[in-house]
Design a protein around this nucleic acid. Structure first.
Lengths: 346, 346
DNA sequence: TTGTACGCGTTATCAA
DNA sequence: TTGATAACGCGTACAA
């Protein structure tokens, strides 16, 4: 059934040279090749439409040409954008980008890394926050160690409890910035909607929120701290929960945009006006934030750019040209839209 | 730098057997192996934490364990969902899923297939509609032919002008269904917003719209047919364009949900009420459709399920168990929400 | 400037 | 029941 594809030997025969010479032409080897011979070889390659077998190449250089990317939820524009940014760079260098969607499930995440290890991935990127789970931590540490001892790069976006290079996203700073913005607008009674408990990102943002309030000595009220899961539906649930304790509340910080949109939707659904009755902010600046009603005030995380930077970092580090030690850097910025009411001009 | 990883030989030495025997244990070969020996080998494998090198395995059976997926826009939930569905199945069988995001760009699309060919992908899935471009068609036909002659499966969602298995999505039917729904609600003056001209999908849906109107002998008015690009912004632009010719218009069919949401947003922005002043519908039933204001009436394309079905088809066909010839089937359904006003009870 | 011979890690074939 | 050998397709030291 499967026909043997043409190999370097076929080309050699056709060009009347040895496979070695073909290989040299193919790889622009430093070894000299007569320009006439080179032309003959190139002609033969073209005529036979020959392409070297990557598996054989990989076997001999111990290179898989595979880059693994672990993603929590591909439908979340946060991850989709990051992957697109990475791919934009990586595709030029003919690496295979292998994406795993894990839904923040411990077993799926472990399975993904296990497969990447088995496939000798040259790099693995953990694009989401770390999972807070003992079993995960132990198993993952083993896989990562093995990957690294095989010369693979392992990279994490935001802090991970492993010995890997991590790219700081400024989660804590983002939460602090957006909270400070509310404070500057005169808000003092502020609710906070957390992310999924299993995520490190959740802790980091929660930290930033607390810092902002503590810096102004504003007490944190338990009844206004609500659990969430980073989804639109989670935002809706949180909003319904807040409704019971709404007296005195003037603003809500959702720890990501999806939830902020859910919160606004549910509040509107319950007859509240935003921002007149209640201000709402998020973190992330996903595309939908711009078109919400009202448009959402949030912190922009330039995720696509981050993806591009990660891609460049990987290519430079994987290339033989010695490691390129730039630390990708993310610029956060406040995106002021219409979901916050100022309490100053009362 | 890169340490040589442990090979089957290391295991063989440790277990005091030949590599062949280790291989037999590893693959649960039919060839008999003494149970004592088998235990010794398994112990050695565990102690050394050995995993066979997939590249070497692939080289010998001419199998790459690679499945390529070509996607137009990963940030579009349509594609993200389909990929997630496919992956859910495929990951169980240890295949590598290699995704390419092409932004509907002819060159990127060709580059992606070229790389998949070079990497000996065992299957390639074209998840988006075909691109209507002469150069694309010719080049792509060549790549596909080569893939197929190497025994690879090539699959297309919706019609493609190549000799490949194609999975019908019912684009034409979807447009006809949603248009008929408007007609049943008494609408006669209906605008249509097209997709990108380069896409086959655009033609198919446009066809369905026309059929619905022609069947009732309702004339199609050129001024109410507007170009679009399947994006939210494109929907906004289309809405602004329609505003000039709004007299008499009662409903708008956007050929996908993203545009429908853009249309609604812009109309509201311009002071029109939906559905009181104008009804709007889309196709796709993306998650955001449910939470739009008002919630969007649309045609559900069960994309995640389609992804799962494609994954199953691929696994069954790639497995040696002979080809499993089920044609994945997609059930369309009307999702009636609040973006359409009935004109019957006047 | 070109070619020969070997090895990468695995499995299929054949012999013992 | 086990093992030696060749082969997959390619790159590279070494020889010519």
């Amino acid at each position: 059934m499967t026909v043997r594809s043409i190999s370097i030997k076929d080309v050699a025969r056709r060009a009347g040279v040895s496979p070695t010479t073909v290989s040299r032409v193919l790889n622009n080897s430093a070894h000299p090749v007569n320009s006439k011979t080179r032309r003959r070889v190139k002609a033969a390659i073209a005529e036979l439409n020959f392409h070297p077998n990557r598996l054989a190449q990989g076997l001999i250089n111990n290179k898989s040409h595979l880059i693994g990317v672990i993603v929590h939820d591909l439908s979340d524009p946060y991850f989709a954008e990051m992957v697109k940014g990475m791919e934009r760079v990586i595709i030029k260098y003919d690496y295979i980008v292998n994406i795993y969607n894990t839904s923040r499930d411990v077993d799926k995440e472990l399975k993904a890394v296990d497969l990447l290890r088995a496939n000798r991935a040259e790099a693995v990127v953990l694009t989401g926050g770390t999972l807070l789970d003992q079993h995960y931590r132990e198993e993952m540490a083993g896989y990562i160690k093995e990957l690294q001892s095989n010369g693979s790069i392992v990279l994490g976006v935001t802090a991970h409890p492993f010995n890997i290079k991590s790219i700081e996203l400024g989660n804590s700073l983002a939460a602090r910035l957006i909270t400070n913005y509310l404070l500057e607008q005169g808000h003092r009674a502020i609710a906070y909607i957390n992310g999924p408990a299993i995520l490190g990102t959740t802790n980091e943002r929660w930290q930033g929120f607390q810092e902002a309030l503590l810096a102004r000595k504003i007490p944190i009220r338990d009844k206004w701290i609500v659990a969430g899961d980073f989804s639109f539906e989670g935002g809706r649930r949180a909003a319904r929960q807040l409704l019971d304790e709404i007296t005195g509340l003037t603003a809500v910080v959702a720890s990501n945009d999806e939830m902020a949109l859910g919160v606004m939707w549910e509040f509107k659904n319950q007859g509240l006006a935003i921002p007149d009755d209640l201000s709402v902010v998020g973190i992330g600046n996903i595309p939908a934030a711009k078109y919400a009603y009202p448009p959402l005030t949030t912190i922009a995380l330039p995720i696509f750019d981050l993806g591009v930077q990660i891609g460049e970092y990987l290519i430079n580090t994987l290339g033989d040209k010695g490691s390129f030690n730039d630390q990708p850097e993310v610029q956060l910025s406040l995106v002021e839209r219409d979901s916050v009411r100022s309490l100053l001009e009362v």
